[in-house]
Simulated scan of single mutants.
Amino acid sequence: MPENSDSSAEIELPALPATAWAVLGTLTFGEELSGYDIKTWADWSLNYFYWSPSFSQVYSELKRLEKHGYVRSRSTPGDTRRRRAYSITPEGLSALREWTRTAEVDRPTLKHSTLLHLWLGHLNEPENLKARVREHIEQMVELRDGAAARAANSSDEPSWAFANMVMHWSRRHYEAEITMAEELLELIDSTAERYEHAAKQLGTGLPVPIDPGRWKDRTNRS
Rank of each mutant, 00 (worst) to 15 (best):
L65Y: 03
L129A: 04
D217A: 12
R194E: 09
L62S: 03
A22D: 15
D106E: 13
Q139E: 13
L143W: 05
A163H: 11
H68Y: 12
S8P: 04
Y70D: 00
S170F: 02
P90C: 05
S113A: 14
P17E: 10
S34W: 01
L110Q: 07
L93K: 10
K63P: 06
E157V: 14
I38W: 01
E186G: 12
R101G: 04
R74K: 14
H112R: 02
R150Y: 01
N4F: 15
I210T: 08
G30W: 07
Q201Y: 04
G25E: 12
L13A: 05
L96S: 03
D189A: 07
A42K: 04
H136E: 13
A149I: 00
E91M: 11
L110R: 10
I188D: 01
S113G: 06
P2R: 15
L33T: 05
R107L: 13
P207G: 06
S45C: 09
K111L: 11
T89D: 04
A85S: 12
E32A: 13
G25R: 09
T26D: 03
E157R: 14
L118G: 01
F49A: 01
E12D: 12
E32Q: 11
H168L: 09
L24V: 03
L33Y: 06
P2G: 10
R83H: 11
A199F: 08
Y174L: 02
A85M: 13
H117R: 15
S94G: 08
S222P: 00
G213A: 06
H136R: 14
P209Q: 01
T102Q: 12
L129M: 14
E196Q: 15
K130V: 06
N4M: 12
L27E: 02
T100D: 11
Y174D: 00
N47P: 00
G205L: 04
S155M: 09
S45E: 06
E32L: 06
E104P: 14
G205N: 05
Q201F: 05
I11R: 09
M165V: 10
H117M: 15
H68E: 12
T28F: 03
G92W: 00
E135Q: 12
A103N: 09
H168I: 09
Y174M: 00
